[in-house]
């Protein structure tokens, strides 16, 4: 018998579209993004999104070990998505499992089109996504953090990659599903976009949707992702603006 039994809420969404955490269908949970928080990594980012706490670290471009993995004409991209044992309500057995191997692949493929891999032949760029606390939507939060960490590392990119999940609960298309909606909702659709061209680099669906619902969900996802992109830009520029302000303030005294 598990010690922790989750219960489905009686009502996932009211007739007026109020969700279990009080949000309306189009509302996103609170988000905070911070870059450059790890000293030893070439680039890093931390994202707090609802109950999620995710750390992304980028190393490289650096020498490939083992050497035979190196590609002669472009950089190799390696990604590791990992959940801390304490990140879930019940202890997660440490180490890679089926799910984290899949998410590593999904995040890598969402991010890779953004990188000018041909600029760094024969090298490797390692991306680590560490989930410290999970609360639905960790893969999209991981994509956002990884993209920030890459930009923070000074790697040549076509643009940033922003991501958000959308879903369906009964007849409502909802933005950024929370834990309850992820567990008991009818459909879930994480998506990511390369922001410079707004091309979709990640689209998964779990659960049935009609054509109309799918189109509505896609449109809502696009809107959310544009919002996240604005936050990413702000997060990347923030450290430089803070230094600039403090220099000017010192000058006035």
């Amino acid at each position: 018998m598990p010690l922790y039994v989750e219960k489905k809420p009686d009502v996932l969404i009211t007739e007026d579209g109020v969700r279990t955490d009080g949000r309306l269908p189009h509302e996103i949970r609170p988000i905070r993004m911070t870059v450059g928080i790890l000293d030893k990594a070439d680039g890093s980012a931390f994202i707090e999104w609802g109950g999620n706490r995710i750390l992304a670290a980028v190393f490289g471009p650096r020498e490939v070990h083992p050497k035979h993995l190196a590609l002669p004409d472009k950089a190799l991209i390696r990604t590791r998505y990992n959940m801390a044992p304490f990140s879930t309500p019940e202890r997660k057995r440490p180490g890679p499992d089926r799910r984290s191997v899949e998410l590593s692949k999904v995040i890598r493929e969402a991010i890779k089109p953004a990188i000018f891999v041909e600029n760094y032949p024969g090298s490797v760029i390692d991306i680590f996504v560490e989930v410290l606390r999970s609360d639905a939507g960790t893969r999209v939060a991981g994509v956002n953090a990884a993209s920030l960490a890459l930009a923070n590392a000074g790697i040549a990119m076509r643009g940033l990659v922003a991501a958000c999940a959308v879903g369906r609960v009964e007849n409502f298309i909802i933005c950024d599903p929370n834990h309850d909606e992820d567990m008991w909702g009818d459909a879930d659709m994480p998506m990511a976009m390369l922001m410079e061209s707004e091309k979709i680099t990640l689209l998964q669906t779990d659960g049935p949707m009609t054509d109309e619902q799918f189109k509505e969900a896609l449109e809502m996802g696009r809107r959310c992702i544009r919002f996240l992109y604005e936050m990413q830009k702000e997060a990347l520029k923030r450290p430089y603006l803070i230094v600039e302000r403090s220099v000017f303030e010192q000058g006035e005294v």
Partner: peptide
């Protein structure tokens, strides 16, 4: 000139 820009901007 000298504005902070992000990748893809």
């Amino acid at each position: 000139n000298r504005e902070v820009v992000v990748p893809g901007q």
